[in-house]
């Protein structure tokens, strides 16, 4: 009999915290599936104007997938890290597909004017943001992780601190710096570097 997802996820998380880095790759699809499944449940349950929060999805996925008796508290952090990655993938893939179908291939990729709007509105174009975030990963991976966890995973500062093993104050400071970098990156700048 195949083991239940809960047992499997719990086992993989334990393996990971015991140093088996490969288990993360096996974990990701399980978590992705659960988020997918939960998303469906949410949608079926709340049909209209329910403010669907990634925070709720990720936490609920956690509670459903992890056997609380078998897990160390710090393994939760690993779970959240993967879940945030999965959320990012779900959201960005969707945004990319959506844009492709809207654009029909003829529109320019994105104009500088639009980019300027993106930087100032609260919800930027996820595709543009994702690209910029990859740029940040290249020069400062931890800050990029903070963005992923906070923005895509919906985690609080405390939780991010737990995931990254730094203090909350550090998270607050670096989060702000990461936002400034992205904001700058997304702003139209007449003589910006490439």
């Amino acid at each position: 009999m195949p083991s239940t997802p809960t047992a499997e996820v719990t086992r993989l998380l334990n393996a990971w915290s015991n140093g088996d880095r490969g288990s993360a790759e096996q974990l990701a699809p399980l978590i992705y599936d659960e988020l997918h499944h939960l998303a469906g449940l949410y949608l079926a349950r709340e049909r209209k104007e329910h403010t669907l929060q990634p925070t709720a999805l990720v936490h609920e996925a956690y509670l459903r997938l992890v056997d609380l008796r078998e897990i160390e508290w710090r393994d939760r952090a690993h779970f959240f890290a993967i879940a945030a990655q999965a959320m990012r993938r779900i959201l960005v893939d969707h945004a990319r597909k959506h844009r492709a179908s809207k654009r029909g291939g003829s529109e320019p990729r994105i104009s500088l004017d639009q980019a300027g709007d993106l930087a100032t509105t609260r919800q930027p174009d996820l595709v543009v943001l994702d690209d910029a975030l990859q740029g940040l990963t290249a020069i400062d991976p931890q800050k990029a992780s903070i963005v992923e966890l906070r923005f895509f995973g919906g985690l609080s500062n405390e939780e991010v601190a737990e995931v990254l093993g730094v203090s909350r104050a550090t998270v607050v400071r670096r989060w702000r710096m990461a936002k400034a970098w992205l904001h700058h990156e997304l702003s139209p700048d007449e003589d910006d570097d490439s």
């Binding site: 469906g40 930087a119 700058h184």
Partner: peptide, 26 residues
Amino acid sequence: ESLDQVDDFLETPAVAGLRAAVAELA
């Protein structure tokens, strides 16, 4: 300069698009 402008930036988790993404997935 950017630091002064990011108070609200990205503070709301990626809600926009989530519904649509979720709908599509579901």
